[in-house]
Design a protein around this nucleic acid. Structure first.
Lengths: 241, 241
DNA sequence: CCTCGTATAATTGTATACAATATACCTTCC
DNA sequence: GGAAGGTATATTGTATACAATTATACGAGG
């Protein structure tokens, strides 16, 4: 057990700070607080019935998670994700998910393997029925299983960070297209490679899975959301005020 | 400009919290505070002449940087790095430094290219003279230049995180061996590949550079520092008290 | 001698008061 | 009318007081 999971253990669910942190993270990821929106300490505190102290500490944590940006003596703002950020993240994830799949081939446990198979089976079912929410949920869970199976807390932590970071964008694009089936087929092939003990193939398939996911995002509206200026910041348009 | 560098801009150097944060980070990385040592809010506050509030906020940031671990209602402890952690980091860095070198081949600026060449030239000089401190400094700087040259704030940020994280270990191993020359030669080859526009070669060389660096660490005392139990935690030996 | 429990001390968690800073608005002067 | 400056207000930064929790020491009971 490394320091990294203990770090996560310590993300205190029951202290006020921990609850504020988790609540704000949820609200940012779900879109309740929109990009570039200012978060005021007193307003958040009153809404949650706590003082400024735990709110401030939660802010410091959210900043390091990359979800908000704190400008000294000014305020805390929900960060925007640029199209360039998304591209970079998928580039990085492509390599690291490949590494993760390769390591998982050696390290995956029986239970994890079974949950992975069940995950794919269930996703097929919900795909038939058109249950978009469940499909998204299972998709997320598939990757989490993979992360946990690689037996590297550091890699797991890094990948979960990136994964969470792009969730905001994914929610806007995945629900309206037909990527679900293809994605699950790719999951199946990755799983089969791992089960067969073919680490090199698992790595290659996981690499490609990320590339496909990104390509699909671009095709299905990423540019519409973030503008044609892929690579420029979305924040520049709101800096006047 | 993405949110990530703005995040870094906001690492306030002049507020008390920012100064405490940077000071503690320095002290942890330099080894003033040893692994598993407990950091007490009042003690740190008195030493730096500030109240607990900025210290607490600095702790929250240090935790997210992975330098300390906060156990609710108990305390803050300097994190230990296990041999497994180091191995995982170098595995990840190998891939990402390769990606970084590949991207840098397209994106590097004239100034960055020149600083890189100068860096290698200077490192040769100090290698001749046996200036170990300068060699280490130039080695760090070479990688920072590479990170900055890839034109991805996200990748840069991620790599700097990992780089900083292993510095503590590296200081214990690099100063006493003859890796300096070989390392600088590898830097030169990476630089030449970038200069020649050969992205694939630059990636491959950067991959291998990390693998070599790790192999050298293992040969030169990593196990002595962290025990033979590569993969187990160093923290288990201090949990009784 | 060991174990358990209680009291006490030490430490962190939270709230609040006060200080410093930034923003907005209004006045004044050109 | 517009620009410069100052004052009021809002917001964050810091310090401190108090509450809650945890660790420690000590003594009673077995």
């Amino acid at each position: 057990m490394t320091n990294y999971d203990k770090k996560y253990e310590s993300t205190d669910k029951y202290s006020l700070r921990g609850r504020v942190f988790q609540r704000l993270r949820e609200d940012i990821l779900s879109g309740k607080y929109k990009e570039h929106e200012e978060l005021k300490e007193v307003a958040i505190g009153e809404e949650l019935g706590v003082s400024r102290t735990p709110v401030r500490e939660a802010f410091r944590q959210l900043e390091l998670e990359g979800l908000i940006r704190i400008v000294p003596n000014k305020g805390a703002y929900v960060t925007g994700i640029t199209a360039k950020d998304v591209k970079d993240i998928y580039m990085i994830r492509s390599l690291l998910e490949g590494l993760c799949a390769r390591l998982a081939t050696e390290k995956i446990s029986k239970e994890q393997m079974e949950e992975m198979e069940e995950n794919i089976y269930l996703a097929d079912f919900h795909e038939e029925k058109g249950h978009l929410d469940q499909i998204a949920e299972l998709d997320n869970r598939f990757h989490d299983i993979l992360y946990e199976a690689c037996d590297s807390k550091l890699l797991e932590h890094t990948l979960k960070d990136f994964h969470r970071y792009v969730l905001r964008v994914r929610q806007k694009t995945l629900a309206t297209n037909t990527r679900g089936r293809a994605s699950n087929d790719e999951h199946r092939h990755i799983m089969e490679a791992i089960k067969a003990g073919d680490a090199a193939l698992a790595e290659k398939l996981a690499n490609q899975h990320m590339i496909n996911a990104y390509d699909n995002m671009v095709k299905n509206g990423l540019k519409e959301i973030y503008g044609e200026n892929m690579g420029e910041t979305a924040e520049d348009s709101s800096d006047s005020k």
